[in-house]
Design a binder for these strands. Structure first.
Lengths: 335, 335
DNA sequence: CTGTTAGCGCTTTCAC
DNA sequence: GTGAAAGCGCTAACAG
């Protein structure tokens, strides 16, 4: 079983009584071939079960028909979904999707990036949180397509695909306002992070658009964690006039807020409404199920894939592009 | 930026004043090289930043230094963890890990497997639920290493790595027995599935080992879902003498059981203890956090990786192997 | 519209 | 202990 005889392009050419060149061009479509020859070659390929060898092709073309997703935290359910979106679009086009973890330091990421570039990976979705400009630069310098998931658009650093955090947060707050809530507290992650910043902006915008002036005492910054949410909720619910609703920076914080609500002998949404952000799986599992904003990981993956397809097939695209996807409000029982 | 000049083995050879053959052997260690030559070559490699081209190597050797994980459901958090375990071991060894989704029919899986074999993937972890014998057979026939995650050991179908479901379930039940619970109900998934079967066996074994005869009226089969768990709990808690504890077939069922407990105005573990299985992320997020059994996805991944390493490096291993990993009881507040 | 041919960068006989 | 040279299977000039 060690030495199976793969059928090569030469076998096909011989059997179809044409040159290997012709077979190659039937496959690639990079040169006109008479319909008669074409169909004959195709038939022989089918008969022989010929499958081109990607290594050989890659050696010639310098491409690998594969793209990689680099992540820091594999356990975050966001990334598998993004990967699924990539697959949906890229797998039918013959691409292989590799998922690479680059935990730890930026140097670990150096190693991973270099490994990928060695393999002449055609495209990279950089979802590693510790990525630096030098990583982006080395990727694009190698001629590899790059998509980032946040940051500022820069011609040297590839395309960007991201969700509309601000709009999403504005939607939740507007939903609460339209449901009659007025005193709405924000238990947010720190505004130093991109999501913290953007989500705070959405909260403020929605209130103002509704004609309300934000009350700073109702805005809390904590870690983007369950315990951070619990602490934030504790602070806000201890106020003289406690808020009627707690808008949280992400679902984990909302879970923590629910812990606090329960602990204080209150109920949600009876005594206080609670909302999350991201729509992780647990958002639907907790009690009450959380009203939240769906972070469209799958669609982000598809958008990345389409950018790759544009760049990798046909004529070179110049300039960089940014795709912003809408977030979607998911109303459940916590509001 | 189209044509960067990669440095090749010939450049190294020239600069080090040796033949390409020697450089190749310094790299592979497949032939003795004098220490002096060796260190010189190594130095030049470093100076020039030479990196072997995987496509060229693959073309010669028929191997790709990469392994794939094929899954059906990308959103199941079990698989990313398994992938992380694979990475931890295989990435340092120079392997690339690809994650492939084969949703849908067995025919989709055919396509994915064929694609992977075309690329001369070195190893496949088959985690797709719809895999059939023909898939296993075609993989091993192509000389590609295969690891499955369940089933019967068969020389034609590669190695197996799995967790000890029966032992894990026995551990939970024993934990309850030792905590003083006696009437212990089982809200299980259907015993037609491998996990359902094995977990039931663990439940029965633990009771008997403790000297108790299982009461059939306390054993319920439902779907492995939240609503299945809710239904099962409803049935058991409606009994004349309701059980003191509900052991559930997986965490989702336990979440459903908690729904029912709450709905009936009862509390866990005050009125009734509840346990899960798998230790998905949500198990720690629900209230009360679930006592459950940790399904060691990460360790399974590492075990798969080690089997690959054994088969892919050095002398051919013959025969097939099975690795059974222990499950671990996680005691939280629901018991 | 079709064919001949020169490599892509590496591993590996075979020969010294 | 070291080299020369023959391909691995394919693509893309170049040449009709």
């Amino acid at each position: 079983m060690r030495k199976e005889n793969r059928v090569g392009i030469a076998d096909v050419a011989a059997r179809a009584e044409v040159s290997v060149t012709t077979v190659s061009h039937v496959l690639s479509g990079r040169r006109p071939v008479s319909e008669k020859t074409r169909s004959k070659v195709l038939r022989v390929i089918d008969e022989l079960g010929y499958r081109p060898d990607p290594s050989a092709r890659g050696l010639r073309t310098g491409r690998s028909e594969s793209v990689a997703l680099i992540v820091t935290d594999v356990t975050n359910p966001f990334y598998p979904l993004l990967a699924a979106g990539l697959q949906e679009v890229l797998q039918p086009a013959g691409f292989l999707i590799s998922v690479c973890a680059a935990q730890g330091t930026a140097h670990d990421l150096d190693v991973v990036v270099r490994h990928l570039l060695d393999r002449r990976i055609d495209g990279i979705v950089m979802a590693a949180l510790n990525a630096q400009e030098r990583h982006f630069a080395s990727i694009t310098a190698a001629g590899t397509a790059l998509v980032r998931l946040s940051g500022e658009l820069d011609p040297r650093f590839g395309d960007i695909v991201r969700a509309d955090d601000t709009g999403g947060m504005a939607d939740v707050v507007t939903h609460l306002l339209e449901s009659g809530y007025r005193r709405i507290g924000l238990v947010n992650g720190t505004p130093e992070t991109p999501p913290g910043h953007l989500r705070l902006a959405g909260y403020l915008r929605a209130l103002r658009d509704f004609g309300l002036e934000p009350d700073e005492s109702l805005i809390i910054s904590e870690a983007f964690t369950r315990s951070g949410g619990a602490r934030g909720a504790h602070a806000l619910l201890g106020l003289d006039t406690a808020p009627e609703a707690l808008v949280c920076g992400n679902d984990l914080m909302a879970v923590g807020a629910l812990d606090t609500v329960r602990e204080k002998g209150l109920t949600a949404p009876g005594d206080v409404a609670v909302t999350g952000f991201d729509d992780i799986e647990a958002a639907a599992l907790v009690s009450p199920p959380l009203t939240t904003v769906h972070n469209p990981a799958f669609e982000i993956g598809r958008a990345c894939a389409r950018l790759f397809l544009d760049r990798l097939s046909g004529d070179p695209v110049d300039g960089v592009r940014e795709v912003v996807l809408p977030q979607k409000l998911i109303v459940r029982e916590s509001t």
